[in-house]
Structure formats: structure tokens, C-alpha cells
Amino acid sequence: MSKTLLEIEDLYARVGEKEIIKGFNLTINEGEVHAIMGPNGAGKSTLSYVLAGKPGYEVTSGSIKFKGKNLLAMSTEERAREGVFLCMQYPVEIPGVPSSTFMKHSVNAIRKHQNLPELDTMEFIKILREEGRKLGLDNEMIKRPVNVGFSGGEKKRLETLQMAILKPALSILDEADSGLDIDALKVVAEGVNALRDGKRSFLVITHYQRLLNYIVPDYVHVFADGHIVKSGDKNLALELEEKGYAEFVREK
């Protein structure tokens, strides 16, 4: 029996005045890949921000446990250090901060939390270059300010690079496939698959079944109107591709 990594129970959350997550339940065990699919505006990104602890996303009831601890009591950075990684739908640009500097701070913050010595610059650059090469990000790109002037696909590669280096216990990918050409899609998927070791878990939010050909999920959930309305295996994704969400949206 594998251990439970994430346990979300009867979660309600709002953004501003608007209730968006309504009675959401989900349990992810170590090593599992869960896919969430659902119509625009259902609350998928909202869920991912609630998991990451973004200010302004207020949980009104319910609980989230991560490795048995109360995730909701942790700050954003504590969650990241515990192993929650959010690969964002719209990665943020940070002018003036080189990607490599940013990633070094990030890696060392997490290493410090794990009582590991900080990596020195040389060691770090070596790792960064190696992993970057696998993802088709050259040294010059890695020196550029975080996401500034990156194309949509390059931004997603940089997110994947961070995931590859930080090796989080739980990676939440919010539309990692949006705006990617087929080659970039494969690169991102390979990045994810390289991390799959039977212990790390993934929550993959996507609109397209295609991504799930490359990152094969153990479970697929349909998310509509703030909660999961149907769960199944990978075949559910194929079904959705064919029929759309009409059935679930009507329910509401």
C-alpha cells in the first residue's frame, strides 16, 4: 500500500466575494498521476492557487493535508519547501533577476529546509546546464531574466526545468500544454516522466487528452462547478474528448 501524499476534504474556497471551490474532495497517494479536466472557468487554476497558498484565495471550510500535515497552516514558501510545486498556467516575468540566480535561491532555500548544504555556484551551474540541455534551454537563456522575453513554449520549458531541479513530491501542472507545439509538448512530458519514480506524485490540469498520451495518468477527474463530478481511469479522458462537458455542465 502506498502512502497518502495529499488529502483534500470537503474544500470550499473563494476569491474575493465569489465562491469558486465548492465541496472538493481528492486524495493523491505517493507515485500517482491524477489528471483534472474541466470546462473553462470551472475553478481549476483556483484550486492550484489554493494549494500553493496564493494571497487572496481564501479557504472558507474543509481541510488539506500534505504528508499528514495541515497544508493550510503553511506559508507559500513553506509549502514549496515541503514539496509542493505549482507549474503555472501563466508564469510570471521578473525583469532584472537572472533565471539562474532565481533558481539558485530556490534550490538552496529548499536544500536548507532539508538540512542539506547549499550548493556552490559552480556545482549549481553544472546541474542547471545539464538539466537545461535536456529541455532544450541553452546557457544563454538560463542567464536571461526570469521569463522576460521568453516565448510561451520557452516559459513552460523553464517551469519544467525548475521542476526537474527541485524534484518536488507533488507537482501541480496547470495547463502545462497550452500554447506548446508538439515537440515542446514531448519535452515537457519527458521532464515529468523523468521524475516519476513511484514516489513523486503529479496533478495534471489540462484541456486536452493529447498531453495524457505522453503523461499517462492513473486517474482522470472531471471538474465542474467547483468540485469533481466524475472520476475514472485514462479512458475517461478519451470519452471527454469525444463528448465534451455538456453532460456535466447541464447537471448544474
Binding site: E77, A80, V92, H113, P145
Partner: peptide
């Protein structure tokens, strides 16, 4: 938020942004 979501604490993130500025 982006920096914090990668484990960097808020003060350090502020410092990085100030230095970059």
C-alpha cells in the same frame, strides 16, 4: 508569489526584486 512558490522566503524575494531594480 511566484518566487515564494519556489521556496524563497518573502524577505529574500523582496531583496532580490529590490536588487534587480
Amino acid at each position: 508569489f511566484y518566487m515564494q512558490s519556489r521556496g524563497i522566503d518573502r524577505e529574500e524575494a523582496r531583496q532580490l526584486l529590490i536588487d534587480a531594480y
